[in-house]
Design a protein around this nucleic acid. Structure first.
Lengths: 371, 371
DNA sequence: CTGTGGGCAACGTGCCGACAA
DNA sequence: TTGTCGGCACGTTGCCCACAG
């Protein structure tokens, strides 16, 4: 009960939460940096959010009017806004700062956590690191927690430490959270606590499941042409335009840091090359899968000839549904056999990522702020 | 439980149901007839389905590329498909036929109907006219009903005749229908029974409530430009294009029968003229409200100069939220004082209308079927 | 340390008639 | 004729512990 009222500006803790919800693979390009924008990939995202309605022929015909639009646009990021689904108000992303003293934990929900029979079992370390300290003079020790989600909505949880052996539990309030967020076993919950003691809760769903709400209010052609029209106009007029990227429903990123795009040319990946690619794994970590390039060709020779987007057809060593048959060069890394590796290089601290972001990119243009 | 599986072709009974759900004001233009299409109105519908996100400036800038697009396009309807929200498969509308022996009733739900405390009280006439006859040798008489909705999903209801005085009730099965359809007091349920005894159930929500699911996956600019790009391309190339009209969320119809459009010129409505306009009222009926024209001007002088769309600013005799401050000429009728009316002219049998329709209109072009 | 299940009390759901508008 | 209520049975929810992996 109680409405999702007047969400305030996103603070740093919200921003951390956004990144935690987005998962370990999402990294946002900094403001003023240069990126490549791929309309083709943008359309893939749109299709992924839309029922496969008909009218493909219409789209093809009508999209010819934008045949001047190149497969990629070099842009400069003029603004980034972190959004959450189903919120009206946008929230500003604060300028990137060093991570403050934020404590957090993730837990993948078990069958018991999500059943109606009981509450949520908080891992001991997580409770001690991240939740407010209990008054151990009480018997049993317990307290009421209040945590805000990305919509600014507050959730109440009773936190108790009881049983033999002792354990931390969230009881009253947990079940309404599970049912309203429609959580199922396998989904992940995230708790964050800022310096000032404020609590945040977030959710990361297990499967890249279809957005629960596929709208039939707009035709495919409408959405498709909208992407092309916006990009095409921005390209010819060299104007700012804005793009919504949804890290957890988009099949692939379509705004790529320019240096990352350039770097792929050095990698010298050709047919027969072995490669590896990052995927999300449990509990805010990432893992790599390997494969072989079997073909280099256009993903869509008619609409997007000579586009690097998904230009590499690959064969995975272990196949699985989330690994596409075609990848783009910047998604993959050359394979270095473990034996020759100097040390298990983890690379720079993996930054974490979120549910939705909005970018205002200007093709090689100014970097004004909008709104 | 059970999935919304492979919906079959829409039959005539479904089609009746669709019209019943759409309400008394929805009339579809026949295939091959000529209509005026108003992009401006189409965009209004899109806006109504979308969170009011920012980027208005972007939209305005980018829509300049379609400045060749006129405010209205004369089109010929080449196909109509009745859709339901959240269904993948489209269903063909059968050619308009004379109404067969279909029995139906509507009831606006009371607080008791929607509470978890009890079932649904079926009005006596409705039960006797429209539900299968009960075996009155039973004590109490009861039967199991199965009714399909527009998604093809079957709902089971226990129908019983009991109490003192006797009344018809739907008990077991009713509450799951209420909760899954998220019905509240004030919404309307519709039951239909065809000649062959098949039952259908439908729902008409009380308020033109926001589509429960406003998607933030697409930017306003995207949707906006998509409408313009599709219409503009169809207009210049004289090609078929398709349009989704949602009778219960669109602020106004934007596909107007050509003869209706022409007729408004005869009405000679000017500043100071009194008029009346149809609105939906309870239980599948319509009622008229009256008002006075106070101004004739462009609704949006910058983007759509000289457009008849909402060109009349009006003052209503009794104001209410659903009555807009601006109307289009074809929405209103000249006011004839009751005293001078020859007979309370009801006009041709009011046809009934539905939740969503898709039209393929070709600007002055061929009338091929798509799909 | 923590996932699952049994025990059990409190609550909600939903069928019934009574009554009155 | 039908909307709302009190009564009441039964199923579900949710807090507790024990136990075992």
């Amino acid at each position: 009960r109680g409405f999702d009222e007047g969400s305030t500006k996103m603070d740093e803790l919200d921003c951390e939460l956004w990144h935690a919800c987005a998962g370990p693979l999402t990294q946002l390009p900094p403001v003023d940096s240069h990126v490549m924008y791929w309309p083709q990939g943008h359309i893939e995202q749109v299709v992924a959010c839309t029922p496969d309605s008909a009218g493909a022929a219409d789209v093809y015909q009508a999209s010819k009017q934008f045949s001047n639009l190149p497969a990629h646009l070099l842009c400069k990021i003029s603004k980034i806004e972190l959004q959450t689904e189903f919120t009206k108000e946008m929230k500003d992303a604060p300028p990137p700062t060093m991570q403050k003293n934020v404590r957090s934990f993730c837990k993948t929900l078990t069958a018991s956590d999500t059943s109606t029979h009981g509450g949520f079992s908080v891992p001991r370390r997580a409770a001690e690191d991240c939740l407010p300290l209990l008054d151990h003079s009480m018997n049993p020790p317990c307290q009421e927690l209040v945590a805000k989600d990305l919509h600014g909505k507050e959730w109440n949880f009773r936190h108790i430490y009881r049983g033999h052996p002792r354990r931390h539990l969230l009881t009253t309030g947990w079940s309404v959270f599970v049912s309203q967020k429609r959580l199922v076993a396998g989904d992940t919950v995230i708790f964050l606590r800022g310096e000032n003691g404020q609590l945040r809760v977030g959710v990361r769903r297990a499967s890249k499941q279809l957005p629960q709400t596929r709208s039939t209010h707009f035709s495919n052609a409408n959405l498709h042409l909208g992407v092309l029209a916006a990009a095409s106009h921005a390209a010819t007029e060299r104007l700012r335009f804005s793009v919504i990227y949804n890290p957890r429903t988009s099949p692939s990123e379509f705004v790529i840091p320019y240096h990352k795009y350039l770097k792929t040319k050095e990698n010298n990946l050709t047919v027969g090359s072995r490669f590896k690619m990052k995927f999300e794994s449990d509990e805010s970590t990432e893992r790599r899968y390997s494969g072989t390039i079997v073909e280099v060709s256009d993903a869509d020779p008619l609409k997007w000839p000579n586009s690097a987007w998904r230009s590499m057809k690959v064969e995975w060593d272990e196949s699985a549904s989330e690994r596409h048959e075609r990848v783009s060069p910047w998604e993959i890394e050359p394979f270095v056999p473990i034996s020759t590796l100097p040390t298990p290089s983890v690379g720079p601290r993996p930054k974490r990522r979120p549910p939705t972001f909005v970018t205002d990119s200007s093709p090689q243009g100014t970097s004004q702020s909008v709104l």
